[in-house]
Design a protein around this nucleic acid. Structure first.
Length: 200
DNA sequence: GACCGGATTGGC
DNA sequence: CCAATCCGGTCC
């Protein structure tokens, strides 16, 4: 089983596809973050916490872990390890490829918002792709959500930084577990690098 | 059962 | 900088 940092890195460039009835949206994953089980204070499974909300994280790899936060946003993760080992990769941004009109309607944004911004940020991504808790535990090989494989993004094109929005995590807030495609306009948050890209 | 704060976002 | 707006986690 590939380590979660490797999965995160490998997810960059792949296409996320969402099918709902006849409606199809798809986008290229350009920003992700790794969250690693009990020892990661930023993770929902920090300290070994196992609750109804994060139960899917404790399950096998290849499922979607979707949670609701700030009273209004959903965040989607890919579970990455075997049962009993709660690690996941948060999908933070995609570049829309298919269904931009539908994404715009779901987002309910003004026409001045450019297409490349429709999947920028974890909450916006979920809204554009109609991902909510109904998809928590959904397999990523299923009819409603799946990934299309793609060659890895070349290391020199990948930025690495601290994860966003986890200041409460103490020293773990500094871990360089965010990966993004440097050239993509759809990347959310700062592009400052804390680490030089390397093999993972 | 109460209380606190969030893996966010957009507007001022 | 800050409000929005529910829910989950924690502790009583």
């Amino acid at each position: 089983m590939q380590p979660t940092l490797g999965v995160a890195r490998a997810l960059l460039g792949k296409t996320l596809v969402r099918v709902r009835g006849s409606a199809i949206t798809a986008g290229r994953i350009v920003e992700v973050e790794a969250y690693r089980g009990p020892t990661d204070r930023a993770a929902h499974a920090a300290g070994g916490r196992r609750t109804p909300r994060n139960e899917v994280m404790w399950g096998p790899a290849g499922q979607l872990y979707v949670y609701f936060t700030y009273g209004m946003h959903h965040c989607a993760n890919v579970v990455t390890q075997v049962e009993g080992r709660p690690e996941a990769v948060l999908l933070r941004a995609v570049e829309p490829l298919v269904g931009t009109t539908l994404m715009r309607r779901r987002r309910a944004v003004r026409r001045t918002v450019p297409p490349w911004a429709l999947g920028r940020g974890p909450g916006n991504l979920c809204r554009a792709f109609a991902i909510d808790r109904a998809l928590n535990g959904e397999t990523l090989a299923g009819p409603r959500v799946f990934l299309l494989d793609a060659p890895p993004v070349a290391p020199h094109l990948v930025g690495i930084s601290e994860r966003i929005g986890i200041d409460y995590a103490g020293p773990d807030a500094l871990r360089p577990w965010r990966f993004f495609v440097k050239a993509s306009p759809a990347v959310s948050g700062p592009r400052r690098l804390t680490t030089t890209p390397r093999r993972t």
